[in-house]
Amino acid sequence: MPGLSPDRGVYLEARLGALRRNQNSDGGWGYFPGKASWLEPTAYAALALAGDPAADRAWTLLSSWQLPDGSWKPSADVNISNWGTSLCATIAMARGEWGPPLKSSVNWLVGSTGIESGWLNVLVARLGLVKQERDISLKSWPWKPGNSGWVEPTVHALVALKLAAARLSSPELHERVRMGEAQLLDVRSRDGGWNYGSPAALGVDLPSFPETTALALVALQGRSDLGKAFDLAQRQIGETPSPLARAWLTIAMRLHGVKTADLTGDPPLDTMITALEALAAPQGNYKLMQTGTGAQAGAVA
């Protein structure tokens, strides 16, 4: 796990300070200060604070939320497997913890798929009985088991599995990464970015969203065929009112080595966005999501 940088700037320190102040006594973070701890804000805060004792406390809490099947639940009280399993796997690897908990989570991710890619659905699609606006034979990841695959959970699963490929390589893992990347490219909107799941509905094109465009770029690190998406991302970052989208767009461009302006302003009240802005800072820990190319993960020919 990387240590703290000596000179991280006011922007980053303001966010890390806010996160430290708002950490719950159980080690986690709520979506907003003073609220119950949830996996998602806790995971992003733990990544942003990697190397800090606050991140260790967070990891202790998150570790207690892993379910026997290897997946993670989204909060202490909700016993439902959750897409945030990917984030926890990424944190485990950032911490150098490659033991059985990580292996079981990676196995769970390799076996997790959107329900639309079940054999009967694929057969029905191949027979032309149902009009499809995406190739459902390409498996992606859902928010929770029993649901369809969507862009955001697919992105986080791809990041985790590409990182895992360094030491937990298997043909199944590589195939899921290859197929996951292909799926993301298949659901790309006509404008070059990504909507939240499908490029069209009832035959009508859907526009891309800045946050999902950014996330897809995070998952597709190393590809050289994304120029139109970067043009779009550059435009979106100047137009979107969403600090969440701006943070992800900045992270995506930094991971691709694309020059981008630093974010400015005071930390928001929203814990998750605070953590993502910290990750997006020039000295932030966005590199913990650096996967290299799909080919490096042994996945893309």
């Binding site: 329900i115 639309e116 079940g118 054999w119 009967l120 659905n121 029905v124 149902v130 009009k131 499809q132 606006e133 995406r134 459902i136 649901n147 369809s148 799941g197 499908s198 069209a200 509905a201 009832l202 035959g203």
Partner: peptide
């Protein structure tokens, strides 16, 4: 699987 058809169909329009 059968229920999934309905869901996938809704997704796909």
């Amino acid at each position: 699987e059968i229920l999934a058809i309905a869901g996938a169909a809704s997704l796909a329009g």
